[in-house]
């Protein structure tokens, strides 16, 4: 991730988005990034930091300093695997993962595209109630479904109603 001096040279803080960010933190009683003292503990134990350049402490820091829009645009937002170690271990009870997920919601709310596979499962949930249709699974040379295995059916009794209420719920915003 970019260093702080690069960031300060490249852009200016975005006060309206900072207000928006803190508005949600306040409403949902999330932990405030302002309590962070940049100890680096979250990043040192971050699962995804082993494989990518994501640094949770850095997301928290840039948000604290007002660079909300820059963080919303970071591709690394999508590198978090939600292992929740940063939230568990932060000595200041800051939850970097919650900062990351709030930024995801803000960026999607502002019209940015979701990663394709994530977008697919979200579509499927709104249309069928599940992330994917019922799969047939392989056993030797044949494949079987829930019924053949003796499992009870999984169905949403009134799918049209379910979808319409869910769509309405998704239009309601807290962010």
């Amino acid at each position: 991730m970019a260093g702080i001096t690069d960031q300060l040279r490249a852009t200016k803080p975005q006060p309206e988005l900072v207000d928006k960010f803190y508005g949600v933190v306040e409403k949902l009683k999330l932990e405030s990034p302002f309590h962070c003292f940049q100890c680096f503990k979250c990043t040192s134990g971050c699962t995804s930091f082993r494989l990518t350049e994501i640094m949770p402490h850095s997301f928290v820091n840039f948000v604290r300093l007002g660079f909300v829009e820059d963080m919303m645009r970071s591709e690394l937002l999508w590198a978090c695997c939600q292992c929740l170690k940063c939230k568990e271990r932060c000595p200041q009870e800051v939850a970097p993962v919650d900062v990351i997920f709030l930024l995801r919601r803000m960026t999607v709310g502002s019209g940015a595209e979701l990663p394709e596979d994530l977008s697919k499962i979200i579509m499927s949930v709104t249309e069928t109630g599940f992330i994917q249709g019922l799969q047939k699974v392989k056993v030797g040379d044949t494949s079987v479904d829930r019924g053949q295995l003796g499992l009870p059916p999984i169905d949403l009794p009134d799918l049209a109603k379910f979808s319409s209420v869910l769509m309405k719920a998704m239009e309601e915003q807290m962010e």
Binding site: L28, F101, R104, R105, V108, G109, L114, L118, I121, I122, V125, I131, A169, M170, E172, Q173, M174, E175
Partner: peptide, 8 residues
């Protein structure tokens, strides 16, 4: 999955 797009 919807946690990525909103809260409600």
């Amino acid at each position: 999955p919807l946690q990525n797009v909103g809260t409600v």
